[in-house]
Amino acid sequence: MEISLSINGGVRSFDVEPRTLLVHLLRDEAGLTGTHIACETTTCGACTVLMDGQAVKSCTVLAVQADGAEVTTIEGLAENGKLHPLQEQFWEKHGLQCGFCTPGMILTAAQLLERNSDPSEEEIRHGIEGNLCRCTGYEHIVDAIQAAAADMKK
């Protein structure tokens, strides 16, 4: 089936089987391997991307369901070579160790800050409930999101 969608600002067309998952389209067809595959069961959030501005687990969206949508992956978050404040602060605050959960974590955080520009620590922890990190214990992730929220208000 022919579909076309905007990926990180550029409209692209693909011929996909209906059963193709969005995460596989992004990684295997669009070549954007920053979106990671881990649990494949809608649990871990590693495959999170923004679809029409909403964080979604791309292992649980069919590519055909994204026909006509605007998708943002981690590769699309920096603008003109300048990292997003979340990317800067994950770096600065050591919000990652192995980095596997990081793209999904950052995109979920991006949506969190869009809905709530000044989240409390509890709101941040609740807001990333759908993203699992097995390295950091979340402390530095929460710090990074708080610091990015402060940066984005400047």
Binding site: T42, K57, G127
Partner: peptide, 9 residues
């Protein structure tokens, strides 16, 4: 229900 991403979809 579920988590943020699940509630979005």
């Amino acid at each position: 229900i579920g988590d943020v991403q699940v509630r979005n979809r």
